[in-house]
Computed example of a mutant assay.
Amino acid sequence: MKVIPIRCLFLAGVLMCGACGPLFDDVEPTCEGWRPGDVVFTELLPDPEGTDTGQEWMELHNPGRSAVDLRGLLLYAARADGSQERAYFFEESVPVAPRGHVVLGDVRSEPLPSHVNHSYGDVLGSLGNSGGLVGLRCGSVVVDEVRYSGPLRSGVARIYDGRLVPDAVDNDEAGRWCDAPASSSDGGTRASPGAANPPCAEAATDGGVPAGSCLSSRTGAVRSLSRPRPGDLVITEIMADPKAVADAQGEWVEVYALRDVDLNGVTLANEESGRALLGDSRCLELKAGTHGVLARSADPRLNGELPSVLGTFAFGLSNGPEPHALRLSLDETLLDEVSWTSAATPGVSRQLDPSRRDATRNDAPEGFCPTPKDFRFGLGDQGTPGAENRPCT
């Protein structure tokens, strides 16, 4: 491993140094193909019981379907304002299995403890016990970065809520992290290194809004949630293989409401382990007779210029001819489900014929058809996100 001098500056993916030593190309190979969210931070232990030296660690999760290798990336830590950054360069292979975890630790001697997969030694120094940030980058691409704040409890890890699908955007929100529950243990430490996190306890409030309530963006007032029942929501359109933008930013799902409902607390899941819990202090309102768009990204600059996005999900939608499924549920009660086996057509969504717009008739695969070429949105892909579908012929 090498310590990268922090007085060197990144510019256009190259580390430019003055009197700080050799150029970036001389000290590390080029890392290519990494995108934000390819791996994400899911657990941190900045304040172990007893001495911190040699016992701190952090956990990364690979949410994708293919293994990745951290070789060539930089792991960094700093104060919460970004100052006093120190960085560790992965010279050797550190693989992370699909849907798997890797634990990186401040270990100063061999052998590694059973819960640590790779040691960064003393390169990062001590993580701040009152707050700080950790991140991972490939050149100028920040793969993930997380800020944490105190008060931290000695011997208690901070975990990303196990009810949520790990995501590089969602894990920026402090409210989605909590202290590891007392049921987890690792030599007296409350933590779950290298394993899926347990759920965080239900918070009494979310952003000052009482549990079971939400803040209406229309009225500005707090009101009770209008929870959907089976049949109230219908999956009506799916873009599994966008052409104008990358899948990781441009995939989306459209839902239709048969009565006024809020999507707060609703889970969108695929045929594998992908799950996204829709939640916010604001009301995710969907009025009867209207469509809502759930997407990989809410930023129109990244998602192909979708209309307003009601909620986001982090898992991918498969493009092949194998069996697929999408499910909407609330507290494990199924609201709607669709399944199909056909491969996605690049740049073309699958839409439900409006005559089959209920949670029973949309079960038949023949109820869906490709969006006609005359109906395009944003950057040119075929689809009608947030708008009326066209009849299948």
Rank of each mutant, 00 (worst) to 15 (best):
A157N: 03
A246Q: 05
G279K: 07
T236H: 02
Y120P: 04
V253C: 03
E49M: 15
V107H: 09
A257Q: 01
G208V: 12
D331S: 11
T345M: 11
R376C: 10
L9T: 13
L278C: 08
T393D: 15
D331W: 07
E254G: 03
M16D: 15
N264M: 03
A244F: 14
S149L: 11
M239L: 07
A204R: 14
A180H: 09
C369Q: 00
E91N: 08
R65N: 14
K287R: 13
V94D: 05
A191Q: 03
V266F: 02
G304F: 11
L334R: 14
E49F: 15
G316V: 14
G380A: 08
R259Y: 12
D26P: 06
G72H: 00
Y88I: 10
E271S: 03
H61W: 03
R35H: 05
A364I: 01
E322A: 11
L352G: 00
V94T: 12
N197C: 10
T333P: 02
G37C: 09
F89V: 15
T30M: 15
S140W: 09
L136R: 04
C200Q: 07
G50A: 10
R99Q: 12
D179C: 09
L45G: 12
E366Y: 08
V96L: 05
G125V: 08
C283S: 11
F24R: 15
G250T: 13
N362V: 00
A182I: 10
G212A: 07
G304P: 12
V293K: 00
I4A: 11
Q84S: 13
P48L: 01
A298E: 14
R137E: 14
S119G: 13
E305P: 02
D172W: 06
G150K: 12
T360C: 09
A78G: 12
C8M: 09
A295M: 11
L215N: 01
G250K: 07
V234Y: 01
K287I: 09
D186Q: 00
D122C: 04
L284G: 10
D280K: 12
D47N: 08
E332V: 11
V141Y: 09
F315Y: 08
E91C: 04
A77E: 02
P199Q: 02
E32D: 09
R7P: 12
L225R: 10
E305S: 04
S192V: 10
R390N: 03
G304E: 07
E59S: 06
T345F: 08
G212E: 04
V245G: 06
T205D: 14
D280V: 01
D38P: 00
R86F: 10
S140P: 05
L9Q: 14
N62I: 03
P95S: 15
D172P: 03
A80G: 09
I6S: 14
G367F: 00
A246E: 12
F375Y: 05
D280P: 06
L15N: 05
N62P: 03
V39Q: 02
F41K: 11
R259S: 13
D247V: 12
C283E: 09
S93V: 13
T384G: 01
L284W: 08
V156P: 01
A387P: 07
A201L: 08
D161Q: 02
A364M: 07
D47C: 14
L302D: 04
V222K: 06
R218P: 00
L133V: 02
G131K: 05
N319H: 01
L164C: 07
